[in-house]
Computed example of a mutant assay.
Amino acid sequence: MAGNSASAGRSVTSRALAVLGAFDARHRRLTLTEIAGRAGLPVATAHRLVGELVGWGALARTPSGEYVIGRRLWDVGLLAPVHSGLRELASPYLHDLYGATLATVHLAVRDGLQVLYVDRLSGHASVPVVSTIGSRLPLHATGVGKVLLAHAPPEVQEAVMGSLTRITPYTISQPGRLRRQLEAVLEDDHATTVEEMTLGACSVAVPIRAGTQVVAALGVVVPTLQPRERDRLVSAMQVAARGVGRHLPSVSDGDRVDFR
Rank of each mutant, 00 (worst) to 15 (best):
A25V: 12
H27E: 12
H27N: 14
R29D: 08
L30G: 14
L30E: 12
L30F: 09
L30Q: 13
T31F: 05
L32T: 06
T33Y: 04
E34Q: 15
A36G: 04
A36C: 11
G37E: 13
G40Q: 07
V43T: 15
V43P: 02
A44L: 09
T45K: 05
A46S: 12
A46E: 12
H47Y: 08
H47G: 11
H47R: 15
L49A: 09
L49R: 09
V50H: 02
E52I: 12
E52F: 07
V54P: 02
G55N: 13
G55R: 14
L59F: 08
L59T: 09
L59N: 09
A60K: 11
P63K: 11
G65C: 09
E66C: 09
V68D: 02
V68S: 02
R72D: 07
L73E: 02
W74N: 09
D75N: 08
D75P: 01
G77I: 01
L78A: 14
L79D: 00
P81A: 08
P81M: 10
V82C: 11
H83K: 03
S84W: 01
S84I: 13
G85P: 03
G85R: 15
R87N: 09
R87M: 07
R87H: 03
E88Y: 02
E88K: 07
L89A: 14
A90P: 07
A90V: 09
A90N: 10
S91D: 11
P92Q: 11
P92D: 08
P92V: 09
P92A: 13
L94P: 06
H95W: 07
D96H: 10
D96K: 08
L97A: 08
L97V: 08
G99V: 02
G99P: 01
A100V: 10
T101D: 06
T104R: 00
T104A: 01
V105I: 03
A108T: 01
R110E: 04
R110H: 09
D111M: 10
G112R: 12
G112N: 13
Q114I: 00
V115Q: 15
V118T: 11
V118Y: 03
D119P: 07
R120Y: 00
R120I: 13
S122E: 10
S122M: 07
S122D: 15
H124S: 11
H124W: 04
A125R: 10
V127R: 01
V127H: 03
P128Q: 04
V129Q: 00
S131V: 12
T132C: 05
I133G: 04
I133Q: 05
G134Y: 03
G134I: 11
S135Y: 02
S135F: 03
S135V: 06
S135D: 09
L139T: 00
H140W: 01
A141F: 01
T142R: 00
T142D: 00
V144C: 04
K146S: 05
L148M: 06
H151F: 14
H151S: 10
A152I: 05
A152Q: 04
